[in-house]
């Protein structure tokens, strides 16, 4: 049995970092700036998004995007907390951080299944 499970969390962080680096900027631009400001809006925009997100491939894509990026973010936050003086609470911080990513992943699944 391998001594430390750190390799597993680091793998998620690393995959998530690549996914986030490649995909997050354009999604921020589209859903957070372009859509609200009406740059991409058409009259049928809501219906268009509904049809797009309902597709199983889109759901798989979004699941990967959300889940891996959540794990990437919490891993970094965990280490920032260690490196800014909270190292003595190592275990509870790790549990809270990865737990939050699990909650985020589960929430993503629920949302995607509901659409």
């Amino acid at each position: 049995m391998p001594k430390s499970g750190e390799a597993f969390w680091w793998s998620l962080f690393s995959a998530g970092g690549m996914v986030a680096a490649l995909l997050v900027p354009i999604h921020v631009l589209l859903s957070g700036i372009a859509a609200p400001l009406g740059w991409v809006s058409t009259e049928a925009f809501g219906n268009q998004m509904q049809a797009l997100v309902s597709h199983p491939l889109t759901k798989i894509y979004l699941f990967v995007l959300f889940s891996l990026t959540f794990f990437h973010c919490v891993h970094r936050i965990r280490h920032v907390l260690y490196d800014t003086g909270l190292r003595e609470y190592q275990t509870p911080i790790a549990v809270i951080c990865y737990g939050a990513a699990v909650i985020g992943t589960v929430a993503t699944i629920f949302v995607l299944l509901a659409i």
Binding site: P2, G5, A7, F8, W10, S11, S14
Partner: peptide, 10 residues
């Protein structure tokens, strides 16, 4: 070393 460590772990 992290990459090879992760591969080893998996």
């Amino acid at each position: 070393a992290k990459v090879s460590g992760a591969i080893d772990w998996f």
